[in-house]
């Protein structure tokens, strides 16, 4: 008795996958970019109002024995942390979408594989995350220094080490893509 073969996985045609990635990426980008703008502007405004308006007038005021500037610093820091986290979540989605579009635009027409999209995602994510976290650190630095002068330096060291790792993984993903393109090019030459 012949054994039953396991059903083959239905292969998604290249053109269908290309169209799916392209449409989904465009929709995701349209959804996420406005909310990124909103949260970034809100974070900058919290920073500006806190530093320029409310912290100066809170100087010298004590609330049940606790200095008000430090309480305000903590509240602003917590608000900034929540806003930056939201930005990072949306940036992750936007980067995924941008990577999908990049894979569709840069590669040959209708020749997009999930692996290629993954490489672009890793590369884009690394670069964008480093930029976003560096900018977020600039928002946090003053408030962290107000809590403790050493805190800002410790966070900066952590950010630098993490940024080096992110850039290294981005470069590795890009080099994988370059390797793939060059091997395809070499095959054509033969």
């Amino acid at each position: 008795m012949a054994e039953k073969k396991p059903p083959e996985k239905a292969k998604v045609p290249l053109k269908e996958y290309y169209e799916k990635v392209r449409t989904e990426s465009r929709e995701a980008l349209l959804r996420t970019v406005p909310s990124i703008v909103l949260y970034v502007v809100a974070a900058v405004l919290v920073w500006l109002f806190g530093r320029l308006v409310f912290l100066p007038i809170a100087e010298g005021i004590e609330w049940y024995g606790y200095p008000l500037p430090q309480i305000l610093n903590f509240i602003i820091l917590a608000t900034l942390a929540v806003l930056v986290l939201r930005v990072l979540v949306d940036v992750r989605r936007a980067v995924g979408a941008a990577a999908g579009i990049a894979a569709c635009e840069i590669g040959a027409p209708y020749d997009v594989s999930p692996e290629e999209v993954g490489h672009y995602k890793t590369a884009f994510r690394g670069i964008v995350y480093v930029i976003v976290v560096s900018l977020a650190f600039m928002l946090f630095a003053d408030y962290l220094a107000d809590i403790h002068p050493g805190l800002s330096a410790v966070v900066l060291i952590v950010v630098v080490v993490w940024a080096i790792y992110q850039i290294w993984s981005s470069v590795r993903a890009i080099s994988e893509e370059i390797k793939r393109y060059s091997s395809e090019w070499a095959k054509k030459i033969r």
Binding site: L45, V53, F54, A58, I61, L68
Partner: peptide, 24 residues
């Protein structure tokens, strides 16, 4: 001090909420 504390909290909240609403 108590009045000023509450005024500052409310002022900050109003500033952030109204400007965020404009951006939104």
């Amino acid at each position: 001090d108590v009045e000023k504390t509450f005024a500052i909290f409310f002022g900050l909240a109003i500033a952030v909420l109204s400007s965020s609403a404009i951006v939104y």
